[in-house]
Amino acid sequence: MMTDNTATFPSVPQRRPVVIENGAIGMLLFVVCEVMMFAGLVSAFNIARAGAGGVWPPMGQPRLPLEETAINTIALLISGVLIAYTAQRFNRAKAVADQTTHRILLAAILLGVFFVGFQGMEWLALLKEGLTLTSSQHGSFFYLIVGMHALHAVGAILFLVICWINARRGKMGKSAFSAACVLWYFVVGVWPFLYLTLYL
């Protein structure tokens, strides 16, 4: 019943030259909203930290693993570069069927999965050390902000996986892939700021 009206897509005939793909514009707008959301979270964190009077992390709360997370950060950044490279290769004519491009895309996705998995392990370790959502403002903000980022990362990875499957079948939409790229650039690009704000 639901497929009735959607069977005939795409229904909008393109009647003017497209400068930016629909998917990319749409996702860019979404990213604007999400950037502002993280800006809100980070400024809230900074206000709370400033209000704590110089003792940060608060007494009795563990320090965040700055060094280990640096490895993770680099993995994520490499993934972003690989996606940019994939997008460039797809943009060249007929490259959608290219096996090497598919492998690069897969490598980028796996690096993203590594990032989320590593972060999850870090959470488990911190929970054991006594940093929980309600243990202090420090813990609340850490889990809230990193959790929000992880949510975006998982969403973007799923989106990229769908693109990868479609690319291997040879029917990947340009608009959808451009949207997935924009979302992944956002996930990669916002992380260093969050990392420096929260861990330092």
Binding site: L29, F30, V32, C33, E34, V35, M36, M37, F38, A39, G40, L41, S43, A44, A48, L133, T134, Q137, S140, L144, M148
Partner: peptide, 24 residues
């Protein structure tokens, strides 16, 4: 779209305060 982000952040924090016991 440019203004709603911080409120979404605030709404999540308020929801956490109401239901999960945080103290934002």
């Amino acid at each position: 779209m440019a203004s709603v982000g911080p409120l979404i952040a605030g709404a999540v924090m308020l929801f956490f305060d109401q239901q999960l016991g945080t103290a934002f």
